[in-house]
């Protein structure tokens, strides 16, 4: 229960700051200033946008399929947020004690595809359907390298439980998985690229490309339901970043042995590592151009999937020969 309240509160507060951080990052990369009017240095910009979005009218066109149309944003957000249930916070408060920790996360996160499909079909709009189909094809294709790179980490750490995985890495910087087992560097890169594709971020944001498809599957939505889709996108970003921090970068353990231990320091370390990964995701978004849909699919099936299978084999050999 504590973990549910903590992650819900953290996600909502995080989205407010993340939208501001994204606009400022975009501005500085593009050599301009970004929001500066509302509040000192534009800090209150997101709050103004939030108030505007919440009081907008909930438009429902006549020809939409009503129940799937209304329910779809909540399914997407619920599927993403259920994945937070297995994430640990610190050494005292772990996630839910499911024996299939990471496996459950990957299974539930593949349910948000259904919400996107519902939104696209129920909107009764050609552009929504194209955006939804592209998004579903992209998410389903990139789940394969994501799952296989997670499997590489599971082979090396020997457990599916994320709290146990963090506890295994709690002896300083040299015991983090990416430092102690350098064979995990390439799976980390594959995991990072797949996590960009899972949250529909550039360079994989063809489903919501503003210049081609208006808004993709969220075209017909307005007000709070559209905000739910954006909340689900940032939620997926944060979920996969925290998962990457737990699996590769030590979870809630501090880099210097004995310095910052204890529950509060543990959660500060975990969230800082996740926020650094999110900053890298935003940085990549405003630096790289968008991939075309056939380049996107061929990247996943022709390059990332064979590479992750080869890395799975190499990680199994590493576990067999080096560790035991």
């Amino acid at each position: 229960m504590i973990s549910f309240v903590f992650y819900l509160a953290f996600l909502l507060i995080f989205v407010v700051f993340a939208v501001y951080a994204e606009r400022k990052t975009a501005a500085f990369i593009q050599n301009r200033l970004g929001p500066m009017e509302v509040g000192p240095k534009g800090i209150l910009q997101t709050i103004a946008d939030l108030l505007k979005m919440l009081q907008k009218e909930d438009i429902r066109a006549d020809a939409v399929d009503l129940i799937p149309f209304l329910v779809a944003p909540f399914i997407v957000f619920a599927a993403v947020f259920t994945g937070y249930s297995v994430l640990p916070i610190n050494e005292v408060v772990g996630g839910s004690g499911i024996s299939a920790g990471v496996f459950f996360l990957l299974a539930v996160v593949s349910l948000d595809v259904l919400g996107i499909l519902m939104a696209g079909w129920a909107s009764n709009n050609k552009y929504s359907l194209y955006g939804a189909m592209r998004s579903v094809a992209q998410i389903v294709s990139y789940e394969v390298p994501l799952g296989i790179s997670v499997l590489c980490v599971v082979i090396i750490s020997g457990t599916l439980d994320l709290s146990q995985m963090s506890a295994n890495q709690s002896h300083g910087l040299l015991s983090w998985h990416i430092v102690n087992h350098p064979v995990l560097i390439i799976p980390f890169i594959i995991f990072f690229i797949a996590s960009l594709a899972e949250s529909n971020r550039t360079p994989f944001d063809l489903p919501e490309s503003e210049s081609e498809l208006i808004g993709g599957y969220s075209t017909e939505y307005s007000g709070f339901r559209w905000g739910m889709f954006m909340l689900a996108e940032y939620g997926m970003m944060l979920l996969l970043s925290i998962l990457g921090a737990v699996m590769f970068f030590g979870g809630w353990s501090s880099p210097i042995d004995d310095f910052g231990t204890g529950p509060i320091w543990g959660s500060i370390w975990l969230l800082s590592k996740a926020l650094i990964l999110i900053f890298v995701q935003m940085w990549v978004r405003w630096t790289l151009p968008r991939l075309r849909v056939d380049q996107l699919m061929s990247l996943s099936w022709k390059y990332l999937t064979p590479l992750s299978i080869v890395m799975l084999f190499i990680c199994a050999l590493w576990k067999l020969w080096i560790i035991s």
């Binding site: 990957l106 299974a107 593949s110 349910l111 595809v113 259904l114 499909l117 389903v140």
Partner: peptide
């Protein structure tokens, strides 16, 4: 977990 991943996350998407 296998049921959610394969059936609900796979077969239903395929059917839709």
């Amino acid at each position: 977990v296998v049921q959610i991943m394969l059936y609900a996350g796979g077969v239903v998407i395929l059917l839709a």
